[in-house]
């Protein structure tokens, strides 16, 4: 399945990179063309997510779970692929739910930042996939300079996990509080 995975990953990469350009463009411009591109964003992100899920699913079939979860590079690739897919699902959901309101005020810069971060995640995922099949790039050197050796499994200490869990719950609580406060008005 490795060859199919390599073929399939090209689609989410192309679609999400295009989506990044569209989001950044829309964040920078209120012009007619930028607005027209924005109208294609939900279909673009939907196709990207479907292609991403397909590539992720086929990727899980390249090696047995026992294998992929036993190698640092395999673990790192899977971790980044999971985060990247979840992250772009978040961008799709946000644009879909919010509609054109995502371009109001500071939110447009949040969208641009999220899109750029999503592209970075995508790039790291692809780099690690390249390492897995023996195709290396200098991106891993950049990651090393940032303090992450790609040949070691990426994980955080238990205390950090607890902090992340608390922050996530606080964010959900904040959202629910905001909705109930608005409903009460």
């Amino acid at each position: 399945m490795a060859a199919y995975h390599v073929v399939l990953v090209h689609f989410p990469i192309a679609l999400w990179m295009t989506a990044t350009l569209a989001i950044v463009w829309r964040a920078l411009s209120d012009g007619t063309l930028a607005k027209a591109v924005d109208r294609a964003l939900v279909p673009l992100l939907t196709l990207g997510l479907l292609a991403g899920i397909a590539a992720y699913t086929v990727g899980l079939m390249v090696w047995p779970w026992e294998t992929i979860s036993s190698t640092p590079l395999g673990r790192n690739h899977m971790l980044l692929a999971t985060w990247t897919t979840a992250y772009w699902a978040l961008l799709l959901a946000t644009r879909w739910i919010q509609g054109e309101a995502v371009w109001d005020g500071v939110m447009r810069w949040v969208m641009a930042g999220l899109a750029i971060l999503g592209s970075v995640l995508l790039g790291i995922t692809g780099t690690l996939g390249g390492h897995l099949v023996g195709i290396y790039t200098e991106v891993s050197q950049v990651l090393r300079l940032l303090g992450w050796e790609v040949y070691t499994t990426f994980y955080v200490p238990t205390l950090t996990l607890a902090v992340i869990g608390v922050v996530a719950l606080l964010l959900i609580g904040l959202g629910l509080w905001g909705r109930s406060a608005r409903t009460a008005q």
């Binding site: 999971t82 994980y155 992340i164 606080l170 629910l176």
Partner: peptide, 26 residues
């Protein structure tokens, strides 16, 4: 620890999505 880190990341992304979309449900 890697599995927990992966799940924590997804939870954080989901939490952020819920917060953003519920706070700005226009």
């Amino acid at each position: 620890q890697w599995l927990l880190t992966m799940l924590a990341g997804v939870l954080l992304i989901a939490g952020f999505g819920v917060a953003v979309n519920l706070l700005r449900s226009r």
